[in-house]
Structures are given as C-alpha cells and as structure tokens.
Design a protein around this nucleic acid. Structure first.
Lengths: 214, 214
DNA sequence: TAGATTGTTAATCGATTAACAATC
DNA sequence: TAGATTGTTAATCGATTAACAATC
C-alpha cells in the first residue's frame, strides 16, 4: 500500500528544481539565516513565490503561516526527499580523463555518493591509483558489482561500448546509471534508472544562443 | 529589420531537443539512410511524430509531403540552426581534473569548439601540457582573451572564484560561459549567455528516483 | 489582536498531441 | 494517379501564476 505522497506522481519539472532549492537553502544555512519566506526566496532564486510554494507542497506542508519556512528544517526535508540521507555505492566505468575527474570530485561524497571502484578496458591505465583506488580491469567488474552492493554506475566510456555494458550492469543488479556516453541507452531491464549528462548537447544549446554574435 | 525566423521566439524546450535530433540524424547518415519520415524517426527517438514536425517547422519546412525528410539535408540544416558551422574559440578556466578532461574531449572540436588555452591559479600545474597546450597562469588571461578573439569560457573552478572571474571575462568580451561551478552566475553584462552544467544536481535527481530501492 | 504568509483552489499560459487539408 | 506524409490549425493537456481564505 502506498502512502499519500507516494501515490501522487511528481512531475520531472518539479524534481529538477529540488536540487536548486537545496543549494540555496544550504547557502542560507551557511549564512546563519534561520527563516525565509517564499517571497524572499523567490527574489533570490529569480522564480515566483507561487512556484516555490506549489513545488514544496507536493511533498508536504513545510512552512507556517505568518512565519515562512525554517531554513534548517526545510533543508533537511528536501535532503530526505532527494534521498541524500542515504549512502550510494558507486563505480566509475571508463577511467579516462572524465572518469578520473568525477572520481576526484569530493563534493559528491558529501552528499552520500561514495566511489568504490574504477574500471577500464585499457591495460595501460589498469593499476593506476586514483584517489586511493586502483583502476581495475573491467573483467573484474561482474564479480565486484555482484559482491559489493553497488548502487550506481557512472558510464564515462565511448558510446560504442556503453549499451552492452549498461545491460550487463543492469543484469548484475545496479539500480541507477549516470550516463555520460553520448547515446540513449535502451535497457532490457526497465527498472534501472538512467540519468543522462549529454555534455555535447549542452554545449550546442550554448552555441545556438551565441552564434549570431560570433 | 528581423527576418520571419528571427522574430519568432523559439521556446527553450524546442532548442534543447535540437541536439538530440542532430545526433539521431548523424547516426542515420552514418548508416547510409537517405530519407526518413517523422513517424519513423519518432519510433526511434521515442517521441511523437507531431512533436518532431512542430519542432522543425519552427525553423522552416525541411520535408516534403509523401516523402519525408532527406537525412543529409536535415542534418545540415540543424547544424546551421545550432550554429555548428561556425568555429568557436574556447578557453578553459580552472585546469584541474575536470578542466583537463574537457580539454581532452576531442568530440567538441568536431563540432567547431576549439580549445585555445587553459588557465589556472595554481602555480604547481602552470606549465603542464594538456593536449599540446601549456596551462597558463590566470594572470595572463585578460591579455589573452582580449587579443585572441575568445568566444566561450568554460568555468571549471570552485564556486567561490566563479562570480568574479565570470564578470571579468564578460568585461573582456567573452560571448558565452559554459559554467560547471555549482552556482548561478549573476553577471552585470546581461548580453553574455550562460549555460550551466550542474553535475551535482543531475546526480541528485538520480538519487531521488532510486532512493526507495537502495 | 493585526500583520504576515502559508497552503490550496482557480485562472492563465504554454507546450504537446491530434487531426486533416495540401501536395509531393 | 493513388498513397504517403508533410505543414499547420485546432484540441488537449499540463505546468505556471494569481488569488485568497485559513491560520500562525
């Protein structure tokens, strides 16, 4: 049986805004600001106060009439909504430049994403140590994923290799894929969640907007 | 005076889909597929045929009744729309792991984005060669940007440093900023276009969707 | 209490989908 | 020509904004 919150389907537009609220609330918290109204926050974030209230009320009534929102409380609630109070075991598949850069990105760990292993096909980089972890041969990956309770795989490998490896990982029990390969993965196992980061596409939307001034 | 196409404001939802069309058309082209109907493409891309036709018709009538779209022609037209027939001079500001990874990402060059320089404040990495370019001290950046016709700056530096450097770059004549720092840049010069890549936020939306299975 | 501000309903706006006449 | 498929208008759907009663 589902609870009230769970049965309501939250639109992805709302979900994508939550991390930004979380970021702004974190900054308020750092500046020792105790409470904030939707109006005040709307000015800082350049969105409407109405949208903020609507968005938050998808998940519950976190505010108080006449007062606004307690910053720390709301921050923690959004953290829970986003699932940041949990720890996620991550592997990075494809330990080239980008894979290593992500492995070194310490901020992820603060939010509970812990890099447990790096894998690559290239024997030349197998054995290299990145942030205290040796890059492993990709042939070790199946056993590793199956034994170590890995939740998320970060795919930073060429697009040709991505589909097969993604399907393998799904079969081995991974829950989510953070995909940096420039392709849309079509998994047999539909229960695996895919989040794409298509850097080239992001850069192309930038060129669209500046092209007439270059 | 503006032409018909220029006065029509294209929604950002449409713009964001263009690079994906472009990618699929590129793949069709590689597979020597000459023509495609909106229906066929809609199946491959998992969108509606109606949306494809609506999106494309924002920019012109690229198809032919009874035939569909010529793949190569449409590919080239979208390339022009996105501004990919131009060349963009890029600098990378913050030459840490992520900055170096992006400098090495050869695919960008194929689309006309040429990395001309890398800059960092850290004297320990100044002088290191990345893809044939020496990392320069950030003090050289002003002169460099002013003289070398730099169009885009990639910001891969800590969020504390990003706002000031972004404003400086804007003053020195940059057209676009590809921002990887986890902050919303508020530039004085509103003519500079900012495209954000907030990796942490992307990862958080993934955790939202898998949290109950972890 | 009076003022402030939420939570929520209603109104508006914009984006997506459906339908079909035009036409290759 | 007949069939296919576009370009485009109209209908629908969903997301955003406005308004305000509830209430702290």
């Amino acid at each position: 049986m589902l609870s009230k919150d769970e049965e309501k389907k939250i639109s992805s537009a709302v979900i994508k805004r939550l991390p930004r609220y979380y970021r702004y609330l974190g900054e308020l918290l750092e500046n020792d600001i105790e409470r904030i109204s939707s109006k005040e926050l709307s000015v800082r974030m350049d969105v409407t106060a109405s949208q903020i209230r609507q968005d938050l009320n998808n998940f519950g009534g976190f505010g108080q009439q006449g007062y606004g929102y307690n910053v720390e409380y709301l921050y923690n609630e959004i953290s829970k909504i986003l699932g940041l109070e949990k720890t996620y075991n991550i592997i990075i598949v494809g330990a080239g430049n980008l894979g290593q850069a992500l492995a070194n990105y310490i901020d992820f760990e603060k939010s509970g994403f812990v890099v447990k292993g790096l894998f690559d096909v290239n024997p030349k980089i197998v054995g290299i140590s990145v942030r205290g972890l040796e890059i492993q041969d990709i042939d070790n990956m199946e056993m590793y994923v199956k034994n170590k309770h890995i939740d998320i795989a970060v795919l930073t490998l060429p697009k040709q290799k991505a589909p097969k490896i993604a399907n393998d990982l799904a079969e081995w029990g991974i829950k989510g894929i953070w995909n940096f390969a420039p392709t849309d993965l079509q998994l047999k196992d539909k229960s695996v969640t895919i989040e794409n980061v298509h850097l080239s596409e992001s850069l192309m939307t930038l060129s669209y907007r500046i092209k007439d001034r270059v």
